[in-house]
């Protein structure tokens, strides 16, 4: 079943075009990796997809969007703020309820953050912060996860763990990644962006990192 169809989409900020004449179809259950040079338009495309999908999709933006002053619990719990009453949210802000801590805990265990439950995010390392942001997206009730470079600050082993957790929890996943090898391993569909256009859209199986070289060479405009 088709989740989203983009037809002749053009997106730009203040006069400059970032994405041009996009044609894209995303099916439910797909695992998609967006690849391409930085500045090619991956983040813009992710944001566009997120805007179209609305609250059924969880988002991990590149800058994570964590609230430094709050604990890991609170930041992860935020994935379901919109589903809870304001009173419950307020109560959890002041003093986390056991029932909600018990719900958040499995997510943290998966991401190896269980011992940081009540540590404030400001005190965490970059990798731990990234995992917290992923945790928030995993806790989000939607079936779709959109993430912009979600494993850029962790080592390769942890990256695999995080990606495994994501695939286990969310049927449909769209990631932007700069590690080509990891992208090919993780995804079943690769979309390459170059100069604001989709330059490649193929099944990932059987591809090698060097097949993507074209995307990274300075394009002749």
């Amino acid at each position: 079943m088709s989740l989203l169809e983009l037809r002749e989409e053009t997106v730009g900020y203040s006069g400059t075009t970032v994405l041009r004449e996009l044609e894209l179809n995303i099916e439910q259950g797909e695992r998609i990796a967006l690849v391409g040079e930085s500045g090619a338009g991956k983040s813009t495309l992710l944001n566009l997809i997120h805007t179209r999908l609305g609250e059924t999709a969880a988002l991990v933006p590149q800058e994570l969007g964590l609230v430094q002053a709050l604990s890991v619990f609170h930041n992860v719990y935020m994935g379901r703020l919109h589903q809870r009453s304001i009173w419950r949210n307020l109560r959890n802000l002041l003093k986390p309820a056991k029932i909600d801590v018990d719900l958040v805990m499995p997510v943290l265990e998966r991401l190896r953050l269980e011992d940081k439950l009540f540590t404030s995010v400001g005190e965490l390392s970059g990798g731990q912060q990234q995992r917290t942001a992923v945790g928030r997206a995993l806790f989000h009730p939607g079936d779709i996860l959109i993430a912009d470079e979600p494993v850029s600050a962790v080592d390769e082993h942890q990256a695999r763990e995080i990606l495994d957790a994501i695939t286990a929890e969310k049927p449909t996943v769209i990631l932007a990644m700069h590690d080509r090898e990891l992208a090919i391993k993780f995804a079943d569909r690769l979309i390459g962006i170059r100069d604001g256009k989709i330059a490649l859209d193929e099944a990932a199986s059987g591809m090698a990192p060097k097949d993507l070289d074209d995307l990274y060479r300075n394009g002749d405009r």
Partner: peptide
């Protein structure tokens, strides 16, 4: 600046904004 999918209304105020400005 808040993330694109930040909560709205009171949830935004209490979870996203207030903790950031408190310090």
């Amino acid at each position: 600046s808040l993330r694109q999918d930040a909560a709205t209304g009171f949830n935004r105020y209490f979870y996203e904004v207030l903790p950031r400005v408190y310090r």
